Amino acid sequence: MWVQILRNKYIQSKTLTQVTVRPNDSPFWKGLMRTKATFFHRTIFIIGNGNSTRFWEDTWLGEMPLATKYRSIYNIVQRKETYVAIILQSNPLNIQFRRSLVGDRWEPWLHLARRLMDAHLSDEPDSIN
């Protein structure tokens, strides 16, 4: 029952990653939102359709977020707040960079691209482990 109340009042049609704190939110909700970053860093996402898992910031491919594992690439990516579905639903991958992938960025990019070849979307919603 409480989950439904919080969802209706604060989350509505957004995902938890899209929700931000507003000045008129209750102290209880503000407290929950302060723990959001810790929750996401300690959670492993199981990819289904990829619509609610953040590509770079959530842990879904390996033991840490891709933003941490591939820091040199993450630093030059144009859209950091994008979801797995948006990246994987197109061929080539829907990732744009602000600079060229040369020098010390090329090898991490190849490594990431090889890992992404094994990632597949389904019709099921994403879940957490």
Rank of each mutant, 00 (worst) to 15 (best):
I76F: 08
N75P: 00
G48P: 00
K30N: 04
N91Q: 08
P92V: 09
I47E: 05
N24T: 12
S100H: 12
G50T: 06
L6G: 04
W60F: 04
T68H: 10
T17I: 01
P65Y: 04
R79D: 10
S52Y: 00
I87H: 04
N91W: 03
V84W: 02
T15N: 13
T59K: 02
M1H: 13
I87F: 01
Q89R: 14
T35W: 05
L16P: 02
F97R: 13
I11V: 12
L121T: 06
F28M: 07
A85L: 03
G62S: 06
V77P: 03
D126F: 01
Q4T: 14
R42D: 03
K30G: 02
M33Q: 07
R115Q: 15
Y70A: 06
I95R: 02
F40N: 11
T82L: 12
L93Y: 13
P65R: 00
F28C: 03
L121V: 09
R71E: 14
I95P: 10
G50F: 05
G50H: 04
P125W: 01
I11T: 01
P23S: 04
I5W: 06
T43S: 06
R114I: 07
W29V: 08
I11M: 00
V19K: 09
P27Q: 07
R105L: 04
T20E: 09
R115N: 15
P125S: 02
R7K: 15
Q96I: 14
G31F: 03
E57M: 07
W56F: 10
T43H: 01
W106S: 08
Q4D: 15
L110P: 02
R71P: 02
R71H: 10
L66F: 00
G62F: 01
M33P: 01
R71W: 01
Q78S: 10
R114P: 03
R71C: 04
N51A: 10
P92K: 11
L88K: 14
S100D: 13
I86G: 08
V21N: 08
L88C: 10
A113Y: 15
N94C: 11
A119F: 12
H41E: 13
Y70R: 05
H111R: 14
R79G: 02
V77H: 01
I73L: 15
M33C: 07
W29C: 08
I86P: 00
S52E: 06
I87D: 06
P65H: 03
A67W: 00
Q96C: 13
M117G: 12
K14A: 07
K36W: 13
D104S: 15
L66T: 00
T53G: 05
T15C: 12
P108R: 12
I128H: 09
R42H: 09
E107D: 15
A37M: 09
